[in-house]
Write a protein that binds this DNA or RNA. Structure first.
Lengths: 211, 211
DNA sequence: ACCTGAACACCGTTCAAGT
DNA sequence: ACCTGAACACCGTTCAAGT
């Protein structure tokens, strides 16, 4: 029993390894794992369905999460962690110039937002409530640290208008968020989403007046 | 009975006028009216609750809407109609120059998006489904006709980069949509939302390189 | 400490039956 | 034509009881 629980995080699909792998063990981790998968596949979540899929009673999740919202909060926090890692990777994998880095960040964000639409919606809704867990806020701040630093550095070398970097970062990020929302809503002409994103970055950098 | 049904649309709150005002009458209109109110106030909707509030059985709505989604579709369509009217009013009430009109449009849109957050979410979700009603698509196109025309005219007088006006319109609108989502998610520093919007328009028009 | 089973108050949807 | 009432298969949450 201990051996299955130690493998759980890395291998996934713990439920099929033995006949009844937890009952006590790593239910908490299994719930989060299954919840994220279900959310990605079906876009909705039922606690009872989760319990059914993991072979525990519908009341069992209560031992690990006070209510459904508590599970969603945990999902949200790990979502920000993952987003932060992907944004960090995007900036590290791009050429050193500002536009290339911003484009890479934008593509990574829009990709995350479209691949995990339901999760991102949770992440937005989490901040909506005033009582959002402190851990969620911290993870969110950390996720957006790299983009903010990029704008700050670009200001330092005179490539971006001066002032609070959050002002210009907010506008850019709103644009990416909106593109993702429009893509998820099917309101974008077909074509490649990355092209639309690159177009948006060019417009953000240079404005829309003729040069 | 006929007299109450003719007054329904204009006065609202029909349910309190007589003891049992419909039972047959304008249930359909009353459902839509109440649904929009509930959605704005609580952000969620239950058909049974709606029926309860209107004093009909929980099965009665079925006569007017095949299922919950059909009611949401109707709400969505009237939402686009209303949005279209507000955008038209915004452009009519602004000074004649491009930036003033764009700022006015943006403020009107963000205002709509924050005042009726749940409705706008429905409007986005409606286009997500491939089987979105034709009426919904038409209402959506109509709502965004004025903004698109603004970009087209600005291109004609050389104030905006040439090309398909939808390209630049998409970027601008994504930005406004993202600002609204961030405002609804509580991710915007306090301050006036209109200031943030005006800042965004300025950035969109002039870009973020130092002038 | 962790989980179960029954219970409660809700859902959306269906359908025979009423007027 | 329009509405009701009972029924079905779901929810989330609570709580006494089991191990």
């Amino acid at each position: 029993m201990l051996s299955t629980s130690t493998r759980a995080g890395t291998l996934g699909d713990v439920a099929t390894v033995t006949t009844r792998p937890y009952h006590h063990g790593n239910l908490r981790a299994a719930l989060l794992e299954q919840a994220e998968r279900t959310l990605a596949e079906r876009g909705a979540l039922s606690l009872r369905e989760l319990a059914r899929e993991l072979g525990v009673s519908h009341a069992a999740p209560r031992r690990h999460f006070a209510d459904k919202q508590a599970l969603l909060d945990a999902l949200t926090e790990s979502g920000f962690d993952r987003l932060g890692r992907e944004l960090d990777a995007a900036i590290a994998g791009a050429a050193a110039d500002f536009t290339a880095r911003l484009t890479s960040l934008a593509c990574a964000y829009v990709d995350f937002a479209t691949q995990r639409a339901a999760l991102l919606e949770l992440m937005f809704a989490a901040k909506e409530r005033p009582d959002a867990a402190a851990g969620v806020r911290a993870a969110a701040d950390r996720a957006f640290a790299a983009p903010l630093a990029l704008f700050h550095e670009a200001q330092a070398v005179g490539e971006v208008v001066p002032g609070d970097p959050k002002r210009v970062a907010t506008v850019a990020w709103a644009c990416f968020q909106g593109l993702a929302a429009m893509a998820n809503g099917g309101m974008l002409e077909a074509g490649s989403l990355d092209d639309v994103v690159a177009d948006a970055v060019d417009r953000l950098v240079h404005g829309m007046r003729p040069r």
